[in-house]
Simulated scan of single mutants.
Amino acid sequence: MRGMIRSLLALFAFLVLAVPAQGQIYDVEERLAEHLAACEAGDKWGCGYAIALWQRQDAMSWLLERNVNMHMRACSLGLDGSCWKFERRLEPNPYAPVRADRERFLPMVVSGCENRSTMACWQAASEYYELGDMDRAWDYADRSCRAGFSDGCARRADVEATTGVDPQASYIAACHGNRPGYMRKQAYCEAACTMSDAVSCRTLADMYVRGRDGYQPTDRRERRAVELYERACGLGDSEACNRRG
């Protein structure tokens, strides 16, 4: 919850600084120069404000190499939103070449993780997992997971399962975590529920009721949801008991 409040406050500040009030007049180029200088000096928000001003001037600026490079800079400085851009799956996708180029992408997300972007930590973990470097993959996934990002917990579970370590705690953390991204959590909730974690059973039931797995669609199965609420209630979860009907 605290993380969500911080994000909302940051977004509010972003909108206040990047978008002028009606009738407010200022020199856009002067303001842009200030944000670019701040970005160059290591202020991730300065990078974000510059991107916003570019987009206000040209709605298609997100397709330009300048925009991609600025998001690379912002991600490396720990701006979660910029790191997210490189997971974009729609077309056209100007971020795909960077995402596919490990020599460019991996240093960016490693730096972003060091600057406390939980998205970047997960991205770094995924890169190291694909490289077979399980020690680094676990370390970066653990950083992301402990900060509450459920994709990081899911990746940590994958590393543990691959290396023969008991992944139960990571299954549970993946299911309970907030800010889910592109990795599906349903399988991790299934595993944790099977291991008799009540909250995971309730979370899984919620998925079947809403037809959503994080940001992704999934099947709506009301009968299965009722069964899971019953199981969670039997395991002592009072919220599940209230949702059975």
Rank of each mutant, 00 (worst) to 15 (best):
S7A: 13
L8G: 02
L9T: 02
A10K: 15
A10E: 09
A13F: 15
F14A: 00
L17H: 08
V28F: 03
R31F: 09
R31W: 03
A33E: 13
C39F: 11
A41Q: 10
G42D: 08
K44P: 02
W45D: 15
C47D: 07
G48L: 02
I51R: 14
I51C: 01
W54E: 07
S61V: 01
G78Q: 05
D80A: 08
D80E: 13
D80T: 03
D80W: 01
D80K: 01
S82I: 06
W84D: 15
K85H: 06
K85L: 09
E87H: 08
R88S: 10
R88T: 10
R89V: 09
L90Y: 05
N93S: 05
Y95A: 05
R99Y: 08
L106K: 08
S111M: 07
C113D: 08
E114T: 10
N115T: 00
S117L: 05
S126L: 15
E127P: 04
D133F: 03
G148A: 07
D151H: 07
C153Q: 03
R155L: 15
A157V: 04
G164L: 04
G164N: 04
D166P: 04
Y171E: 10
I172K: 15
A174D: 04
A174L: 07
H176E: 14
H176R: 11
G181Y: 07
Y182N: 13
M183V: 12
Q186D: 14
A187P: 01
Y188T: 00
C189E: 06
E190V: 12
C193N: 04
T194D: 12
S196R: 11
S196D: 15
D197Y: 06
M207A: 08
R210K: 13
D213P: 11
D213A: 12
Y215M: 11
Q216G: 01
R221T: 09
V226M: 11
E227F: 09
E227I: 07
L228W: 05
E230C: 02
R231L: 13
G234Y: 05
G236K: 03
D237E: 14
E239Q: 12
C241F: 11
R244V: 09
